[in-house]
Simulated assay, not measured.
Amino acid sequence: MEQKLLFFDIDGTLITEGAGVLPESTREAIRLAQDSGHLLFVNTGRTRTSLPQKITELGFDGYVCGCGTQIFLKEEELLHARLTNNLCCQVVKTVREYGIPALYEAADAVYFDYQIPDKENQAKKIEDIFGIRGKDIEEIFQDEQKVYDKLLLILKSTGKSKELKGYLSQYFECIDRGNFMYEVIQKGYSKATGIHFLCEYMGKTLEDCYSFGDSENDRAMLEAVPNSIAMGNAQESIKNTCAYVTEDVENHGIYKAMKHFGLI
């Protein structure tokens, strides 16, 4: 088989949600696919600093991070779409006015606004998920060189949340991740734009690409390529989008899908 480009979501795709278990069959499938000459990329909403060590140790050929806003081939940075410090500060001030806890994700750090009461301890929960300690968003105000790339916040069904979402939608796309969690990404960027960028850079076509995912923030990359694979644990709306539905993460879904398509 000619060289293909494979793109993988992390949570719910390469590893299980919550516990973050990486099946040994997934590790083996990645090794076999690379041995066959294919190039494998993580395609994630996480920024580079939030990538789990168990993922980076697998030796991927590159990373599409922050929903397409930062792209690496090996360790070479090919793209980094940066917001201005002025816009970053403006957004923080506005979110602060609404009193809604948010995670501000940068390439090298994650920030919290500790001036906002976190009654439901969301910051601690998010820190546990990412496995890193958050920094104080005040650093963005104090250093004009510092910016973040995207946001993650809880927007419950209230008038205030609707207003804030409307404000953010001027500059960002707000992706509903379920349970009132929204991933707020720069307009014009997505997991799909990351695939398009690498296709052009590598001289490949979309027919040469395979994408693996399970949730709404994977929709763009799954709809972008004809060879789209939904995990067995994926949302039904995502399964209906894809060309093929494999097994759950823990039931060797990645390995079985690669076998099905003759990638290994």
Rank of each mutant, 00 (worst) to 15 (best):
I140R: 09
V225M: 05
V245E: 05
V21Q: 08
A220T: 15
K165D: 02
F7M: 01
E138R: 15
K125V: 13
L168D: 04
G66S: 14
M258G: 01
K165A: 07
Y210L: 00
T26Q: 04
K93T: 15
R46A: 02
L32F: 02
F41A: 12
Q142G: 02
Q235K: 15
G62Q: 10
N217G: 10
G262V: 13
C67M: 10
F197L: 10
Y63C: 01
G253R: 07
P52M: 06
N227H: 15
C199V: 14
E97T: 15
L83H: 06
F8V: 15
D136N: 15
H38P: 07
C209N: 03
I116W: 04
G20M: 11
E57K: 15
H38K: 10
V147P: 02
E173P: 00
K259G: 00
I264K: 02
M231Q: 06
D214Q: 05
F261Q: 03
E163M: 11
R133K: 15
A81H: 11
G45V: 07
Y244H: 13
I195E: 00
D128R: 14
E17M: 06
T84C: 01
P23E: 07
K259A: 00
Q70E: 09
I129K: 08
F180A: 12
L51Q: 03
T47I: 11
K150V: 10
G203Y: 05
H196T: 14
Y104C: 02
K54P: 00
E200W: 01
D214H: 02
V110N: 12
D136C: 11
C88D: 05
V147M: 04
S190H: 08
C242I: 06
L198I: 08
V92Y: 12
D214G: 05
G68I: 13
S161A: 10
K125W: 08
D248I: 02
E216T: 14
